[in-house]
């Protein structure tokens, strides 16, 4: 997967979690939403781990310092996507 393809999948899974988060805040007993959240939660974690291994940290705290301080090297999200 290219960086953009992987990012797109993270954005899809991430938005699903954002929306489920809000839904579960007001429907904490909804089993279908709870099951869906668990599935997306797992997928989101896997996608993030894959992205960070290939393309650098998504959060400053996730930075792998074996390659130095890569946090400020990659393009910021407000820059034009390469």
């Amino acid at each position: 997967m290219t960086r953009q393809e992987l990012m797109h999948q993270i954005q899809q899974a991430g938005f699903a979690l954002v929306d489920l988060n809000l839904f579960l805040d007001s429907h904490p007993q909804n089993q279908m939403a709870l099951d869906y959240f668990r599935d997306v939660q797992k997928r989101y974690a896997e996608l993030r781990a894959q992205y960070e291994m290939q393309f650098g940290p998504l959060t400053a705290f996730d930075t792998n310092t074996e390659q130095g301080w890569t946090w400020t090297q990659a393009p910021w999200p407000w820059e034009l996507e390469a």
Partner: peptide
């Protein structure tokens, strides 16, 4: 931060 042309300094602002 968006008008800071140096990534490292934009990182400090962020």
């Amino acid at each position: 931060r968006t008008s800071m042309p140096y990534r490292q300094v934009a990182g400090i602002l962020n």
